[in-house]
Design a binder for these strands. Structure first.
Length: 447
RNA sequence: GUCCCCAUCGUCCAGAGGCCUAGGACACGAGAUUUUCGAUCUCGCGACCGGGGUUCGAAUCCCCGUGGGGACGCCA
């Protein structure tokens, strides 16, 4: 059993391609087969080394490891030409004057790229091609609807369909799993398999991932590349779990499950045949689930590089303290970026006071007095721990005959500038007495 | 236009003829927690596209319609 993922390095790894890669990988890991990576770089103009690096990085980040060295189609031109010649010799193909087509459809004949006549495969009309698709079941196509197929372009490079067939056959790929958008390529490829005398692999076409308006997911729907999600603070584990659930299900209403479990349960035959809309809200939830599952140390390890590069911490920063901070924000964060957006005031003294927060919690009758009293109590405290802070606050509330919340809310705004955040007593402990007192003093200017 | 694929809550999935007065999750709404909420807990809202068959019985099988998507490059 051998499958492959065959990206062309003409762009970043799209979320849809990532899912195709994942399904191939899962199927291979599930059945103990091989997962091959083949680079389809036969488009001279658009293929770029930087894109290849990007794709490889994304695959590694997702944890999709491949089993052999990379295969580059651009290094196998002789092989494709050999098979093209065979078609020519057997009278199954003919040659045609060179031409180059641009994207807009216009034809140019005088291009430097034209190095030879194109080789074109003759399609016999009136034949029915039958596919027994792993996910769709039987599909039939009449060759009347298929035009003659270019095999070798005028620049000497093979076309996608031809190179794909030659490689899949030579590499003995047993299962070709790819996106639904390739269904119409499959009968063309089968014609090549037959003409070249190759054995047919199994085909499985997985549905597409759609944007919220049900059209193919593209930039206007938001982030489409794996890299972007990585940058936005999503975890690879969550990403893989979420993508796997787009068009497949482990059954028994299970959703959040470790990769081992997914591998164990995965079967391409259980993939759905219907397109799936990508729902960022659910991804957010899933990512939050994974963030919460990490213990503070694991999460801190992920946060560390960014904390350092922001200059928020140094090598001298106390580890236990960092662990506490991490734990404080973990529960609410849905992405790693949330953590940075929400915790800045813990690491620096720059506080962005939210207008609403000041209006609602600070510029109120009596707040100045409450803050002053709170400040006194906190100054007098022997230990500055969450427990003792809570005790002092509640005691003060009793004495002033107000609710504890009337102290808690303004203090939270005073130290963080925000209405929402971690539990106040733990937060104050983590901030430390000096910072807390300073900020209580500082906020008076805003009253 | 031609060909192909698809059709269960707003979204993702469960459902392989009786287990379905259709189940779970996200989102949404309400309540709780009186230390906030973007956290947590509880409850609620909400779907088998339409029409014909087949069958004792259909979300499940067949046909037609409708709707959505994809492909029709010397791109991959």
């Amino acid at each position: 059993m051998k499958v492959r993922f065959a990206p062309s390095p003409t762009g970043y790894l799209h979320i849809g391609s990532a899912r195709t890669a994942l399904f191939n990988w899962l199927y291979a890991r599930h059945s103990g087969g091989k997962f091959i990576l083949r680079i389809e770089d036969t488009d001279l103009e658009r293929s770029k080394a930087e894109f290849l690096d990007e794709i490889l990085d994304s695959l590694k980040w997702l944890g999709l490891d491949w089993d052999t060295e990379l295969i580059h189609q651009s290094k196998r031109l002789d092989i494709y030409r050999k098979y093209a010649k065979k078609l020519l010799d057997e009278g199954l193909a003919y040659e045609a004057e060179g031409e180059i087509r641009s994207k807009d459809g216009s034809v140019t004949k005088d291009s430097k790229r034209i190095t030879q006549k194109a080789v074109i495969f003759k399609v016999q009309p009136g034949k029915i091609i039958k596919i027994n698709d792993l996910v769709h079941g039987p599909i039939e196509i009449n060759t009347d609807t298929i035009k003659d197929q270019v095999v070798i372009k005028s620049d000497g490079f093979p076309t996608y369909n031809f190179a794909c067939v030659v490689d899949d056959a030579e590499m003995q790929i047993t299962h070709v799993i790819r996106g639904d958008d390739h269904i119409s390529n499959t009968p063309k490829q089968i014609l090549f398999y037959e003409a070249l005398g190759f054995n047919l692999p199994e085909f499985g076409h997985v549905p597409l991932i759609l944007g919220s308006d049900r059209s193919r997911m593209s930039k206007r729907h938001g982030a489409t590349s794996i890299r972007e999600y990585r940058e936005q603070g999503y975890l690879p584990q969550a990403m893989v779990n979420f993508i796997a659930l787009l068009g497949w299900s482990p059954g028994k209403d299970r959703e959040v499950l470790p990769i081992d479990e997914i591998i164990k349960e995965f079967d391409i035959k259980n993939a759905k045949s219907v397109n799936a809309v990508f729902d960022i809200e659910k991804l957010n939830w899933m990512n939050g689930q994974y963030i919460n599952k990490f213990d503070n140390q694991e999460l801190l390890d992920l946060l560390m590089p960014e904390l350092k590069s922001r200059g928020w911490i140094s090598d001298q920063t106390n580890k236990d303290w960092l662990l506490k901070v991490t734990g404080l924000f973990k529960e609410r964060a849905r992405t790693l970026v949330d953590f940075f957006d929400w915790s800045g005031y813990v690491f620096t003294d720059e506080i962005k006071y939210e207008e609403q927060a000041i209006k609602k919690r600070i510029k109120k009758e009596g707040v100045a007095d409450i803050l002053r009293s709170a400040s006194e109590r906190l100054t007098a405290l022997k230990d500055f721990t969450a427990v003792s802070i809570e005790g002092a606050c509640r005691e003060l509330a009793d004495e002033l005959k107000i609710k504890a919340a009337d102290i808690i809310h303004p203090v939270r705004v005073a130290v963080s500038g925000r209405m929402m955040g971690p539990g106040l007593f733990e937060l104050l402990e983590v901030l430390g007495r000096d910072k807390v007192l300073k900020r209580l003093e500082q906020v008076k200017k805003l009253v």
